[in-house]
Design a protein around this nucleic acid. Structure first.
Lengths: 283, 283
DNA sequence: CGTTGTGCAATGGACAGACCATTGATGCAT
DNA sequence: ATGCATCAATGGTCTGTCCATTGCACAACG
């Protein structure tokens, strides 16, 4: 037995193997305490990530700080560089660190990327964890809050920006170029969300808006003829502090959009289900 | 010409090298158009991630589906296994896929993990992108929405669960065991959020609540003596459909908590700034 | 003296090949 | 049937190697 284990003990891999052995051996020796520990099968890169996150939470690592180079981290932690890379990769995906090549390069702690909130919610949506119905409803509701706050806190420059936004919308053709119109809408909502002076609401609105607008593009729903009129009225209400009117204007529009999207989704799924049906019958 | 390009074309690294050459060669020959394209330097694993996400968005990959084994993917895509692993790692962190060892193992498309929304927002908070003030304000506002919906949609079983939750809270000691009380609070808010029947709101509330409650634990603020009274009253309002009363009860409590947390934060940062000051003077 | 280019070292990105641990299936022995 | 040993598939990890990018120091040149 275990000629294998003893030989590997001399190798650098020794760090890992003992862990698994220990659970077995202590369970045998330490009869007084059957332990049944959760059998630490955490992957090494997870351990590394946690260490970094711990340092972050305690303030030892702050945005702008630089982590040691991959090779150095690997030797320090006694793991392979590949493991370190996977850890850095996962931290990078989480938006915690950014990697830079070249001399003076390395892994730097970032300030955090609000886009990741959007990304994670978008994944939920694409994976079917979030329904279009829930999404549009939540957006309608949250925008009510935003309008409320925006009316109270908006600054003249932002109002001017909103007006410019609507003006530019009038210059766009009403057919085709859906992506451009949608980009204008995205900015419109972004301006309102920024007026709330609350970064959390901004992130939430940014996420919901982006996902919904993407659906708008894909669903090919027609351009709302009165959209410009509604927008202009909304801006006017916000500028003059008519909170309730602004709320109603916003809610009405979003609910209208919601109905349109739901109808589009229904027809789309009907088409798809019909298609998949034929596919299934064909093979 | 291009003995290099033809030779490397046989190797798997061909995807990358030609790119850089082209920019140089065409710039020399094709004088009429200096092009100077942005030189696409996307990393391999990002490309892989995008491919998977594309398949997801188009519906070719659905939750439960299994991706090919790492080795097979690597050869199919003509990249190394390490690159594939980094891609899978990033998708795993994003909660899109889950990896399972052993025979019949592999990478499976998941349904999506709402916890990742929490994680990303938590990172924003820890990295200073979100202030405690904004966080608690947003939570207060969003809970208003939740109460509104909950009053309209809650079911008797959920009301009963809320009552049980408050009952259990009375059995806990009012000192120490902050983590237990906080866990009860977390469940309390989760029940309310579930009553909204809107998964998006659920996720948002889950995230904000968890982060705030963690701050509660760390800030060592004292137990609110009237908490139980407030909770019981709130449940009563919800059960009897007194929306405005319920909203006010909730808002009042959250604003009270908000003030406490802000005060705790202020004293904490004062202490910390004093400490860092001494540290800086010492070295 | 300043400018420019050139080489060098540091560092992330990627690859190849190997070995181990886990897991399920398969077949053999009891 | 039951249990045990073996095997193959697959993720997890390690080692070693090479390449591309980047910044810097230093030499060459005007």
């Amino acid at each position: 037995m275990s000629r294998k284990t003893t030989t590997v003990a001399t190798k650098s891999r020794a760090r890992k193997s003992p862990r698994r052995q220990v659970t077995a051996e202590t369970a045998a020796k330490d009869r007084s305490q059957p332990q049944f520990a959760p059998i630490r099968t955490k992957r090494v890169f997870e351990e590394i990530c946690e260490q970094v996150r711990r340092e972050m939470a305690t303030g030892s690592l702050r945005p702008g700080d630089k982590l040691p180079p991959e090779r150095e981290l690997a030797t320090k932690l006694g793991v392979s560089r590949a493991a370190v890379r996977e850890a850095l990769r996962s931290l990078e995906i989480a938006g915690v660190v950014g990697l830079q090549k070249g001399a003076r390069g390395g892994a730097f702690i970032l300030k955090g990327d609000p886009d990741l909130v959007t990304q994670s919610i978008r994944d939920m949506f694409h994976l079917g964890r979030i329904s279009l119905d829930n999404l549009t409803e939540a957006r309608t509701l949250v925008m009510q809050l935003a309008i409320q706050l925006a009316c109270e806190r908006i600054r003249p420059t932002t109002i001017a920006a909103l007006e410019r936004n609507v003006d530019r919308l009038t210059t766009l053709p009403t057919t085709g170029k859906a992506s451009e119109r949608v980009a204008m809408s995205a900015e419109f909502y972004r301006l309102i969300s920024q007026a709330t002076d609350n970064t959390v609401l901004q992130m939430i609105i940014e996420a919901l808006t982006e996902i919904v607008l993407q659906q708008v593009v894909q669903s090919n729903i027609e351009f709302f003829p009165n959209l410009i009129v509604h927008r202009r009225r909304l801006v006017e209400y916000i500028a003059s502090g008519r909170i309730e009117d602004a709320k109603k204007e916003m809610t009405d529009h979003l609910q209208r959009l919601r109905r349109h999207l739901m109808r589009a989704e229904r027809t789309a799924t009907e088409g798809k289900s019909a298609r998949t049906l034929t596919e299934e019958t064909s093979h």
